[in-house]
Write a protein that binds this DNA or RNA. Structure first.
Length: 549
RNA sequence: GGCCCCGUGGUCAAGCGGCUAAGACGCCGCCCUCUCACGGCGGAAACAGGAGUUCGAUUCUCCUCGGGGUCACCA
């Protein structure tokens, strides 16, 4: 049986040729220097930070160069498929503002290089496989799981490298009769690539993120087509990225180990190799050692987490960008309000080592991002979040939108905006006391060195002042509060009080605190005058009265 | 174990043969101040170790150590 006969026997249904495929997916006509990138997730229903991290690099690379950014679905592992996997992928990327120029969508493929779902590309992979078989570049392997396990056991015992190579490549040079017999017997088979590599040979390789490195040639006869007729990642990657004319492959550094296989395949098939960007792994501190961010242990790894916690999408994106490009923060400080698109992303500024995911830093970025927003934006984004995750808050915020927006305007804008919260799920706590339904005063936060009787007296005295108050701004309000001091033996001079606290029964600060606890129900709140003004006289008087004991 | 990647403060990081070794987050102190949140000022805190190259190494080379990844009909 010749190679050609074998090829025909294994793939009688395949009549297409590689040349036809090449013709069907011609070179793209793009401007000089345009990059073609892709993100190729598996529809497992779980989207994580790594997906976003890579996708952002792809997106920037393509769109900064006038190229194409596309989505390909890698669903060749049927065991891990999930019902709405593709939908999840699409919706998550959409929410993060990543726009694909072509690829899979819910309405079908968009673009001329499809299908963009690997399970629909069987005929393409098989066309190449059949050709490789005919040329002797690949061969069928009938090994059972047990035989492979036995190989592994022997290799372990002999302290040899694991895998399917050399004398362990059982079917590599099997006589035609054996192949014939196995076929007759109806044994299941896979197709393996006939490696010409040797671990004695090193290859110099240039990675756009990691720099130059030296890697060992692959000597394993890897499986390229599984027994279910679908390609392995290695093969699909090479065929797809070749035919789709991907110029830059961005993926996690966990792929570095299999890079020799990919290079070998590209070369053997006579394809031009894409450039690679192997990104450093996102890490997390576990006890005293670093480890890969894990789906099971780290909620912040899942992109769902950002939605449910109410982390502003823009902030998550900014944070990832700070991880991605070391000069991003500097740029952001200089260009506070510029759209992210204007940042010149550069693979050279990517860190080669794995960054620890820093929740403190994320939180800081969130606060800064939110501080830059208008009250209107904060209102919109918070209600959008609350609609799904906090119906009570949603109800209150939408009941009186103008009131809520006014609350959110306090201290916003200007050179030194307040940064009270950076996450939508903190909004309720921050402004809850403005709503009677959420007002739960804690009078124990009254100044401890002022006795209850005085507290009550202060409240009563202020109520009298407040009923006829003409205060129209924070300063005049403060003057009124200060005027209350003498009758209680307090001082309006904070400096003097701090210097000699013993000299006075209290200070204007204490009076303000008494009022604050009465009106806001707690010791911390934004500017009291603003709060009272928004709440309205009636409500404030009610609360002052309620605090009198 | 083989192969590969990585190694500057607690974290993220500038640096690319000569610097008092930036900056940011976090932490601490002070100032501002009606509290908080801002903002301002200041502080503690680092080149993993050892050889070599060099007049001179954080920077270049080698070794050691440490961390990580990967060795599937998963991606």
């Amino acid at each position: 049986m010749t190679n050609q006969e074998l090829a025909n026997r294994l793939f009688p249904e395949v009549t297409t040729t590689p040349a036809e495929m090449e013709a069907r997916y011609p070179e793209r006509h793009l401007p000089e220097g345009a990059k073609v990138t892709r993100i190729a997730p598996s529809p497992t229903g779980f989207m994580h930070l790594g997906n976003l991290y890579g996708a952002m690099v792809d997106e920037r690379l393509a769109h900064q160069s006038g190229g194409i950014f596309y989505l390909r679905i890698e669903d060749t592992d049927r065991k891990r498929l999930v019902e709405d996997g593709v939908e999840t992928i699409l919706s998550v990327f959409k929410r993060f503002g990543l726009n694909f120029d072509e690829g899979a969508t819910l309405e079908g493929d968009k673009g001329d290089y499809g299908p963009y779902t690997q399970s629909e590309r069987g005929f393409i992979y098989k066309t190449y496989v059949k050709d490789m078989l005919a040329k002797g570049m690949a061969y069928p392997c009938f090994c059972t799981e047990e035989e492979l396990a036995e190989n592994h056991r022997l290799q372990e015992e002999n302290k040899e490298n694991f895998g399917y190579y050399g004398k362990y490549a059982i079917w590599r040079d099997r006589p035609a009769e054996d192949v014939e017999a196995a076929l007759e017997a109806g044994k299941p088979w896979v197709i393996r690539f006939r490696s010409q590599g040797s671990i004695e040979h090193k290859i110099r390789f240039e990675d756009l993120c990691k720099g130059t490195m030296e890697i060992t040639e692959n000597d394993q006869d890897v499986v390229i087509l599984k027994s279910d007729g679908l390609p392995t990642y290695h093969f699909a990657h090479v065929i797809d990225d070749h035919l789709m004319h991907t110029t830059h492959v961005v993926r996690g550094e966990e792929w570095l180990g299999t890079l020799p296989i990919h290079i070998q395949l590209f070369d053997a098939l006579g394809f031009k190799r894409p450039k690679y960007v192997h990104t450093a792994q996102l890490m997390k501190l576990d006890g005293t050692s670093k480890r890969k961010l894990s789906k099971r242990k780290d909620p912040e790894f899942a992109l769902d987490y950002y939605f449910s916690e109410g982390i502003p999408i823009d902030a998550a994106v900014e944070y990832v960008m700070t991880l991605l490009n070391s000069n991003f923060e500097e740029w952001r400080r200089a260009n506070q309000t510029a759209p992210l698109d204007e940042f010149k992303f550069n693979t050279k500024k990517m860190s080669g080592s794995g960054a620890l995911f820093d929740l403190d830093k994320l939180s800081d970025v969130c606060k800064n991002v939110v501080a830059r927003m208008s009250a209107e934006q904060v209102y919109d984004l918070t209600t959008a979040w609350a609609e799904d995750y906090d119906t009570q808050l949603y109800g209150l915020m939408t009941r009186d939108a103008a009131y809520t927006k006014a609350i959110l305007s306090i201290g916003r804008g200007g050179k030194k905006p307040r940064k009270d919260f950076g996450v939508w799920n903190e909004v309720k706590t921050y402004m809850g006391f403005f709503f009677d339904e959420l007002f739960a005063p804690d009078y124990t936060q009254m100044p401890s060195h002022v006795d209850g009787e005085t507290v009550a007296a202060v409240l009563k005295a202020y109520m009298d002042v407040y009923r006829n108050s003409e205060a129209s701004d924070a300063n005049s309000w403060y003057e009124e509060v200060k005027a209350l001091c003498p009758q209680f033996g307090f001082t309006a001079d904070m400096k003097a009080y701090k210097a000699e606290p013993g000299k006075y029964k209290g200070s204007v600060g204490d009076i303000a605190m008494i009022l604050r606890v009465a009106v806001c129900g707690r010791a911390q709140a934004p500017d009291l005058f603003s709060c009272m003004e928004l709440m309205g006289k009636e409500r404030v008087l009610e609360r002052l009265q309620a605090a009198v004991r």
